[in-house]
Structure formats: C-alpha cells, structure tokens
Simulated assay, not measured.
Amino acid sequence: MDLAEVIRRFRLMYFLLKGLLNLAKRNVVITHRDVDGVIAGALLLRYFGDSEVIFAGPRDIDQVLRIVSLWRGKGYHIAISDISLNRGKVGAVVSSLVSLRKRGCRIYWFDHHTWPEEVLSTISPYVDKLCIERAPSATSVVAKYLNLVDEYTKELIEVANDADTARYSLEVSHVYRRLTQKHGTRIRLLKALARGIKLSNELLEEAKRIEARERKVLTDVAKFIEVHTTRGGRKFIVVDFRGTGIKGAGILVKEFCERYGADFAVVIYRDDSVSLYAGRARDINLLPVVWRFGGGGHPVACGCTLKLPLRDRLMAVIAKIFRRRYYPQKILELIDYTKEVL
C-alpha cells in the first residue's frame, strides 16, 4: 500500500467519523474549496438550513459521496456545488447516488464547468436537480435555480464572478481568496457568509497575515519558473508551488504570465496535482490537455490529478529530503503533451 492509498483511507475514516458525530444535522452541503465554492456553499447553507458542510473537488468527490452514502439516513437533502464530474469518477459516484436515492435522499448538483456530454447523460437519472450551466460562477447558478434574488445574494454573486473569472477587480475577492487557502479560515468564512456577515475584523486580520506570507513565497517560487513554447507557437510558463501551501493561485499566476509575456501557465501544486491557467491568451482552450489525464474544468482554467507510480512517489520523497527539484514522469509527460496540442 503506497502513501497515497494510506492518505485516501485516512480521509475516508475522517469523513466517516465526522459524519457519525453529526447525524443530527438534516442535510449535507458539499462544495469546492475556492472563493466561488465557498460563496455557493454559503448560499446553500442559508437555503437548506441545518447542514453538514464538506469541502471537496473533482479529484475526491467520489470518496466524499461514498462516505456520505454510508452515514446519511432517510430523507436528507444532499447539495453539491462548483464541482465538475470527470469521466473516471462516474461509476463510483453513480453507485453512491443510487444508495442515497434508495434511502429517499434528494440530490441537487449545481455547477458551471464544462462537462463531457456522456457524463451529463449518465449522471442525470440519479440527481433530482442537475443544474449545469455555463456561467461566470457556480454561485450564480445556485442563485438562479433556487430563485435567490435578494440584494445580499446579488452582492455575493458579484464577488464570486469577480474571483472565478480571475478579474479580481474587487479587494474583497483578494481577501476571500487568501482565506480559502486553509480549511479553518475557509469554513469560518463560509459560515459567516451564511449568517449574513461578509467579513469580520478577525478574518480580515487573518487575511493580512496570509498575504504577508504569500508575498515571501512568491519571491522564492519566481526563481524557478521555466519558460516553454508549444508547437503552435504559444509561450507558456511552468510554475512550481509544491511545498508552499498555496492553492488556487490563478490570480498570482496571472501576474507571472504578464511578467514573462506568457499565453498560459502550467502550475504544479503537488507531485500529482497540476492546473492550467490562461495568461495573455484569453481565447485559448486548455481543456484538451487535462482531459487527456482525466481532469476537467474551464477552457481557461482547469486541472487534473495524476496517477503516479510508486517509483515516482519515492523519488519525490527523496528529492524533498535532499532539497532537490524533481518532476515526476507524469508531470513531464503532461508538459510534453501540452507542447504538442496547443
């Protein structure tokens, strides 16, 4: 059993125990970890009331639903937002949805990413309300289909749209992005928003501390940026955030793209986690790259989880011990494939 499998099983046990301790809660909200996901989750928590909140993403939605299907009773509402379903997860997700539906649970799924048509047609019979629509944010999809039209919701939609389209023209969008980097501040922000509090002084101070740490990290990361060119003449950069704790760095990467005149960026978050973000080229479609490796997302912002063999995982651990930079073979394959297709 490799390290990844140990971590996966630990996560499953964590969610199982957490669920058993929260059986009194009537509903479950499963949402993404970024700004849009947090705001969408807050709207769902306001709408459904007493709910257990779980953060997930395309890479682990199958595991989370499996656990939820084990500890949910009859007649609950399960609301999922800002999480796309990739081809490789369909079978496991359908199995969990079937189990939940048999117990009378109602399932709602709201998303604004691009889903493969075969995934949509396969999953549709097992979801009571499947709302997948191209939109600036999942928050706007949630608000539309739940008919949330109050002024507070409109303000939150504006922030979610600003963050998820990587415009970041609002200062509050930057603050929220920093607060979504860690679970503790992420869940506190979501619950505050659900109560109608856009930002507390305590969370604002925490965001300032995160910003200071972030700027130092960016200085170090910039030293190792690589520049490449695709067969089609597109210039792109490879940015390595491994070991920094930074997640969802689209707006930070945008600054690097401007600095290097890059059309897009390949961003490495972990040895097995890679995202692609558009830089100067906003007309680019990056999805073919991540689809090849089982991922998904938007044409201009997408990602995938790589299946690494044991050798690559061991080499990565050794490299960290000796403070050497090491790219697993799968990451090199992704970079080479990017050069070929874009």
Results as ranks from 00 to 15, higher is better:
residue 207 A to D: 08
residue 264 F to Y: 02
residue 271 D to P: 01
residue 181 Q to L: 09
residue 326 Y to K: 01
residue 34 D to C: 09
residue 76 Y to F: 07
residue 232 G to R: 12
residue 96 S to H: 10
residue 282 R to E: 13
residue 168 Y to S: 00
residue 23 L to G: 14
residue 122 T to F: 07
residue 302 C to K: 03
residue 59 R to L: 13
residue 317 V to S: 14
residue 171 E to K: 11
residue 155 E to W: 02
residue 218 L to R: 11
residue 177 R to K: 11
residue 178 R to G: 13
residue 49 G to V: 03
residue 227 V to I: 14
residue 196 G to L: 03
residue 246 I to T: 08
residue 175 V to N: 15
residue 148 L to F: 06
residue 289 V to R: 10
residue 198 K to Y: 06
residue 91 G to C: 08
residue 114 T to F: 07
residue 223 K to H: 12
residue 161 N to K: 06
residue 85 L to C: 14
residue 141 V to G: 07
residue 77 H to V: 11
residue 82 D to P: 07
residue 284 I to C: 01
residue 104 G to I: 01
residue 251 I to S: 00
residue 101 R to I: 08
residue 38 V to T: 15
residue 334 L to D: 00
residue 280 R to Q: 10
residue 34 D to L: 04
residue 231 R to I: 08
residue 124 S to I: 13
residue 15 F to T: 08
residue 189 L to R: 01
residue 49 G to S: 07
residue 335 I to Y: 01
residue 302 C to R: 05
residue 226 E to T: 05
residue 91 G to M: 00
residue 68 V to D: 01
residue 77 H to C: 13
residue 239 V to E: 12
residue 40 A to C: 10
residue 6 V to Y: 14
residue 1 M to E: 09
residue 133 E to W: 10
residue 316 A to T: 10
residue 137 S to R: 14
residue 222 A to D: 12
residue 155 E to M: 10
residue 330 K to Q: 12
residue 235 K to A: 02
residue 151 E to D: 15
residue 32 H to Y: 12
residue 136 P to Y: 07
residue 292 R to G: 08
residue 334 L to F: 03
residue 34 D to W: 06
residue 213 R to S: 09
residue 41 G to E: 05
residue 147 N to P: 11
residue 249 A to D: 09
residue 88 G to P: 02
residue 38 V to D: 15
residue 216 K to H: 04
residue 340 E to I: 09
residue 203 L to C: 06
residue 170 L to S: 04
residue 158 E to F: 05
residue 82 D to N: 10
residue 205 E to Q: 09
residue 199 L to E: 00
residue 107 I to C: 08
residue 158 E to I: 09
residue 86 N to K: 06
residue 241 F to P: 15
residue 251 I to K: 14
residue 342 L to P: 06
residue 134 R to A: 15
residue 124 S to F: 09
residue 11 R to T: 11
residue 247 K to I: 14
residue 157 I to N: 12
residue 326 Y to N: 01
residue 97 L to F: 00
residue 329 Q to M: 15
residue 298 H to P: 00
residue 186 R to G: 00
residue 39 I to R: 04
residue 184 G to E: 13
residue 181 Q to P: 05
residue 55 F to P: 09
residue 313 R to E: 11
residue 97 L to H: 03
residue 216 K to E: 15
residue 23 L to T: 14
residue 249 A to N: 02
residue 43 L to K: 01
residue 89 K to E: 11
residue 72 R to S: 05
residue 278 A to V: 02
residue 225 I to D: 15
residue 127 V to T: 02
residue 342 L to R: 03
residue 74 K to N: 06
residue 150 D to N: 13
